[in-house]
Amino acid sequence: MTGNTIFITGATSGIGRGLAEAFHKLGNQVVIAGRRRALLDEVTAANPGMAAVELNIDDPASIAAAAQHLITEFPALNVLINNAGIMPFDNASAEMDDAQAQRVITTNLLGPIRMTSALIERLKQQPQATVINNTSVLAFVPLATTAVYSATKAALHSYTLSQRFMLRDTGVRVREIAPPWVNTDLIKKGDDPRAMPLDAFIEQTMAVLATDADEALVEGVKAMRDNPGSGEHALVNGFNQALVDNPIPH
């Protein structure tokens, strides 16, 4: 939890910024990434000593450039937190917006795969290193009105399991954060009482990250993480019907 050099994608707001500031307060060298320089400057100005890199996680060339910058300027880099993601609503019962679907898959799934690939050899060279993939409770119980998003998070969870196994004999540990609905602007920041307050989520997540758990799950996620196998259809249908009856504002 201390003494690390940590790179966090999608860190100009929400969970990414919350994690960046929490790790920064513990004395780590934190490097944040995002598309917009103005927002990066705002976060680093509020947290003296924090650094920033412009990154378009959808663009392989931008990922390669960011990785080269990190390897050159921050040779002690030993933690990668794949946090960047987007969550547009969709309708799997109708014609899908193909461009939107491709962007969600590129950002949420290919982004972490490419970012880790670009840095993995450097991470292997460190005495101890960690990759943290930010998935979602929706990796286990999909939200039907964000079908593609939920599918990308399920895929990233699966990829994380494989990645953890493949790195088992190295010094690189692979961990997963699977947030519940958190009150950020990922969907719409509206202080809905069903959304977990961001500060509480960060506090609880940091507490779990300080343990040896591979999955950093806050208490409210655990029941859905234990998605009951062949009984999942009733769970998924009940979860989604509850949100039909009391919709998420967007």
Results as ranks from 00 to 15, higher is better:
residue 3 G to C: 00
residue 3 G to N: 06
residue 9 T to V: 06
residue 10 G to I: 01
residue 12 T to G: 07
residue 12 T to R: 03
residue 14 G to T: 07
residue 15 I to R: 13
residue 17 R to E: 03
residue 19 L to Y: 13
residue 21 E to M: 10
residue 22 A to S: 11
residue 23 F to H: 14
residue 28 N to S: 02
residue 29 Q to E: 08
residue 29 Q to M: 07
residue 32 I to S: 02
residue 35 R to G: 09
residue 41 D to A: 00
residue 42 E to Y: 03
residue 43 V to G: 04
residue 45 A to C: 01
residue 46 A to P: 03
residue 47 N to K: 01
residue 47 N to F: 11
residue 47 N to H: 06
residue 52 A to I: 02
residue 55 L to E: 02
residue 56 N to F: 03
residue 58 D to T: 10
residue 60 P to A: 13
residue 62 S to G: 10
residue 71 I to D: 11
residue 74 F to C: 06
residue 75 P to T: 09
residue 77 L to K: 02
residue 86 I to W: 13
residue 86 I to D: 06
residue 93 S to Q: 09
residue 94 A to F: 02
residue 95 E to Q: 06
residue 100 Q to S: 13
residue 100 Q to V: 03
residue 102 Q to F: 04
residue 110 L to E: 12
residue 111 G to K: 05
residue 112 P to K: 14
residue 113 I to H: 15
residue 115 M to Y: 01
residue 118 A to D: 08
residue 119 L to Y: 05
residue 120 I to A: 02
residue 123 L to H: 01
residue 123 L to K: 01
residue 126 Q to D: 01
residue 127 P to N: 05
residue 133 N to P: 13
residue 144 A to K: 11
residue 145 T to D: 11
residue 153 K to S: 07
residue 157 H to V: 02
residue 158 S to E: 07
residue 159 Y to F: 15
residue 160 T to A: 12
residue 163 Q to F: 11
residue 165 F to V: 10
residue 171 G to F: 03
residue 174 V to C: 01
residue 174 V to Y: 03
residue 175 R to Q: 10
residue 177 I to W: 08
residue 178 A to W: 09
residue 184 T to A: 10
residue 184 T to D: 10
residue 195 A to Q: 10
residue 199 D to P: 05
residue 202 I to C: 08
residue 204 Q to G: 10
residue 207 A to N: 06
residue 216 A to K: 09
residue 220 G to Y: 06
residue 224 M to N: 14
residue 230 S to E: 07
residue 236 V to A: 08
residue 243 L to P: 10
residue 249 P to Q: 10
